[in-house]
Design a protein around this nucleic acid. Structure first.
Lengths: 244, 244
DNA sequence: ACAAAAGTGTTATGATTACACCCATGT
DNA sequence: ACATGGGTGTAATCATAACACTTTTGT
């Protein structure tokens, strides 16, 4: 269609791009679960001598024929054996010196999974779930990545029904409240918590009771099916205004 | 320190990475300004034949010796001649086929600048400010990038004093309200708006009046200096809870 | 009987919404 | 005098936060 002008074709431009094909691209996944009343993150011992003894997040280079989102999904599947997980992109870290092997930029995702359903390939390099609040130092800039993802999780959890990805299908309001408390590092008033959850209208009362608890059993609830978004919600570009 | 074990050094690992050094990394800037009572974005005619006639955002490949954030800042300076601008990373777009020249992932930033202070190098390729609401189609996936950044701007504007980067130093409450209305595509009640802005306590009354307006002049205000964050705010990883 | 947690309501405060009139300035 | 926008307050509704007692179950 377009006549020969001073436009470049993509094919021509490709050549001039070649000089720039020397930044590697990776993804890192902050995979959260909730276990023993604690928020935990999946970490593995770094296999770089520079970071000997430190743990890192799970990540990998992105393959040239693989979407960024697909790459993070692949990491997650390879390591946890889980399908159909909640995964959301958070931030891309691109400092020059963040990786000792050379220029590697990385896009961080966070993921929420139900501790009961995953079957970790706990084979090597001390791959394990680590309580988030104990973590002081990690390989690379992974502590900053973890902090950023935790911050995002805390923001999301207030407004969107994502937290349920960390719980089994059926749960009591106490379990839900304890999970909020673990994520936010606060303690919440039980009555106000129940009122607020009630208003949000996210839950279905299953008319079932907890079993095998050493106290009065609580009712069990599940998330209403219409809120089950394993695929990351697309950000609406038109949220309703909250100003005046 | 570490004895020779089965750890790899970064130097060794570098070699195995070489196969993967074939994804290009770019940044794209969604540069907003406010002019003639409209939110506008800086666009330029695409120089790719595939997108002949379409406009694209301003972007460039990231240099191997340049931080991601620095790259976006460079684009902005080159094109607008401005220093000290508000710039925030939003999302990284990494579909395989998003660029016809080959595999290019791009990190999108949005920026807010005062229309009065910029001196555009309006030299070529029809670089110009385009009203955001008219834009239907762009080169590459740039329409999606624009929408995502606009969505982020709308989220931010509710909670954080960022909007002032689009205004001159001194402004009236009417100008401020019109700007909110332009960004959010809503109309706001004047009394409620003023009440809400008052509560936020972001402004200083300058005890000056508008001049040269064909009606009763309004008071002028400026943003309190402590809220002038040209550098993107770092997300707190500990927002106060808003649940119960 | 005791321990542990479930379940539940009221009051006070602050934010939000809807809504209408007089005032100051320029033409 | 008219047109344009500046400036202001009240009442209704809703969300939030603080707070304590009775009930149910397992041991």
């Amino acid at each position: 269609m377009a006549k020969g002008t001073n436009l470049k074709t993509a094919e021509l431009e490709k050549i001039s791009h070649l000089d720039y094909f020397n930044i590697a691209v990776s993804v890192d996944c902050v995979i959260f679960c909730y276990e023993e009343k604690e928020l935990k993150v999946l970490v593995i011992k770094s296999d770089l001598e520079e970071f000997s003894g430190l743990y890192s997040l799970l990540g990998d280079l992105v393959r040239p024929d693989e979407d960024l989102d697909t790459a993070s999904y692949r990491i997650l599947q390879e390591r946890t054996g889980m399908e159909d997980v909640y995964l959301e992109q958070v931030h891309t870290f691109g400092s020059i010196d963040r990786h000792p092997s050379g220029r590697v930029i990385t896009t961080a995702y966070y993921s929420l999974i139900d501790a009961k359903h995953q079957k970790l390939r706990l084979t090597n390099n001390d791959l394990h779930w680590h309580p988030v609040r104990n973590i002081k130092k990690m390989a690379f800039d992974h502590k900053a990545i973890l902090d950023t993802c935790l911050g995002r999780l805390r923001e999301q959890v207030m407004e969107h029904p994502v937290i349920f990805n960390l719980l089994p299908e059926k749960f009591s309001l106490r379990e839900l409240q304890e999970l909020y408390e673990a994520i936010l590092s606060v303690s919440l008033d039980r009555r106000n918590f129940r009122k607020k959850i009630g208003i949000k209208d996210w839950l279905v009362d299953l008319n079932e009771m907890e079993e095998d608890v050493p106290h009065r059993p609580g009712k069990l609830y599940k998330l209403k099916p219409e809120f089950k978004r394993k695929t990351p919600r697309r950000k609406s570009s038109n949220p309703r205004p909250q100003i005046a």
